[in-house]
Design a binder for these strands. Structure first.
Lengths: 171, 171
DNA sequence: TAGGTTTGTTTCAAACTTGAACCAAGACCG
DNA sequence: CGGTCTTGGTTCAAGTTTGAAACAAACCTA
């Protein structure tokens, strides 16, 4: 099977995409580091928690939503806990489980940083795109994400069709 | 000035984008780590070098093309040099300069890994998009990248309009 | 219900990134 | 020239990420 190389159009799209995503993440990380003292991911953790019922979520569910590994999340939450933004609680129904809960301090920080963050996302992303493009971006991103989740690191193909990990709310 | 929050459409686009970019980078990093023993960025370094005149480039120019900091590049090149993929050479015309040159070994590794890499990019990205969407992705990405480069970490606005760092080829 | 497997989470070492500080070497200017 | 500013690169410490290994609790299943 000979390789199907990228067409010139694909090349251009790919390179532009790489550059844009690098630059964008960088800009957002810098802004949040400045204004909230934490990188984007950490801010996202607070953000997701703040929108969850009772502002708490099990570690695995949190990792799932953020599309990161559990290990990475453990590290991040440990830091956030040290800073008092998050508190870890035991899960009553499953003694293995551990729940991350947003503290009032954490919420306050999020609240203070949110306007600046939104402004940044707006000025670097949405201000540059037409309404149409925003829709296109969503569709493109969704298509990509979907493809990547279906198989993740697919367990040998002789496995069960595919079962989504059920997320027990646990509280 | 009251914050202009993201509209529901923007929210969706933003979240989908974040998820997609995280997942995609992850998948590509894993594939390359597997097949080439190095993360995506390191592979890109070899790739950019391989397309440069004489397969060599000054550190600053390389960093510029890859949209990364010089510090990050220094670290990466040091590793690649240790692995024999790249060689550092002095710059004749500017004694400060240092040039990264792709070695034959480096080229060989690149050559061997390229098909798998392209295949991955294809299957996770381009196979999921229509021809039209590829064009849209390029336009969107270009718009974003452009906005982010113009100002970078803009030096106080009372500065010179903006001058692109000239990239002396130096050899 | 003992033994084996899966699931939820953390731990650990190695690799990588960040940003500020540092050190030359070129560029400028009086 | 001699001082000063800028540019190209590296260094260093602190922070983050990775992936594999370790654990413990829950879940089978015979």
């Amino acid at each position: 099977m000979t390789t199907r190389w990228l067409t010139p159009e694909e090349q251009r799209a790919w390179r532009a995409y790489i550059a844009a995503s690098l630059l964008l993440e960088d800009a957002i990380d810098r802004q949040l580091q400045q204004d909230a003292g934490m990188p984007h991911l950490y801010y996202s953790i607070l953000s997701v928690l703040s929108e969850s019922p009772e502002r708490r979520l099990r570690m695995t569910d949190l990792a799932e939503r953020l599309k990161i590994t559990r290990s990475r999340l453990t590290y991040a939450v440990t830091r956030l806990e040290k800073d008092g933004m998050v508190r870890r609680e035991a899960c009553r129904y499953d003694k293995r489980g551990s729940i991350a809960a947003l503290t009032d301090d954490g919420f306050a920080v999020l609240d203070r940083a949110a306007p600046g963050h939104v402004e940044t996302v707006r000025s670097f992303l949405f201000d540059r795109l037409s309404e149409e493009q925003v829709g296109q971006l969503e569709e493109i991103s969704t298509a990509i994400a979907q493809g990547l989740q279906e198989d993740g690191t697919r367990p040998a193909s002789d496995d069960v069709p595919w079962r989504r990990r059920s997320s027990s709310t646990c509280s």
